[in-house]
Nucleic acid binder design. Structure first.
Lengths: 131, 131
DNA sequence: CAGGATCCAATCGGATACTG
DNA sequence: CAGTATCCGATTGGATCCTG
């Protein structure tokens, strides 16, 4: 998490481990909330997949962002990366147990959104037209 | 949600309402994952609060971002904004039922993070030192 | 095939100044 | 008190090119 926030929270007298948690929560939420993570994890939920397959399935993603996102997921231990020593090279990505458990946690949120999507859409409509 | 993504998903033959959901999920996750939303919602969870109080409690936030975030939350119907016709003016923000239900859904994720924080930290450690 | 490196546009977010 | 407007640096993300 970012140092500035930690300092600010600490200054407010919040317990250190609580500070740590708030920061990491935002961290994880930011990861999950970024442009591609949910789409990638959704694809991987159905099984291991190689780089190019992901690139095709997650339509519209650039190589750069696919690489960045996979690396971040790998760093956090949410996916495994397996490179087979072949020619041409083959690399497979797969959700770890941790990754699947996160996917499940995210599912709650997905369900919430599915359930309340009409309400949010309606609220926005009202807000945008009326104020 | 953004038009480009919608077009891409539609082109992949994904059902329209599914496309809508994926987009909105990312939308909501992005909102929840942004820099300040969780902190603000956490503060509001304990009851209604006025602008300045929030500005003090959510330490480090700029007026700009507090205003922007509150406006976004209000637009989605997650908080109410009540202005009292007094001098000096008084404005109170409060979570709506929808907002509280979202906060609860987010809580699942928060619990997940609390539970798996050590694992993630360890994974990052390994990744950063070893590769 | 897998993906890193570079360059650039768009967006995010902070500091400051100003208004009803 | 409760914001909005402006300016600007920082970050995000896409396009393209290059390599083992």
């Amino acid at each position: 998490m970012d140092t500035v926030l930690r300092a600010e929270l600490t200054a407010r007298g919040i317990a250190p481990d609580c500070v740590e948690t708030i920061g990491l929560v935002r961290d994880v939420l930011a990861r999950v909330g970024d442009k591609w993570t949910v789409l990638i994890v959704t694809e991987l939920a159905s099984g291991p997949m190689r780089y190019t397959a992901l690139h095709e399935k997650v339509s519209g993603i650039s190589q750069r962002m696919l690489g960045h996102t996979l690396r971040a997921l790998h760093r956090d231990g949410l996916v495994t990366r397996t490179a087979y020593p072949e020619v041409p090279p083959r690399v497979e990505y797969e959700l770890t147990a941790l990754g699947r458990s996160l996917a499940q946690a995210v599912d709650h949120l997905v369900l919430w959104v599915r359930a309340h999507q009409p309400a949010i859409a309606a609220n926005r409509e009202v807000f945008d037209t009326a104020g």
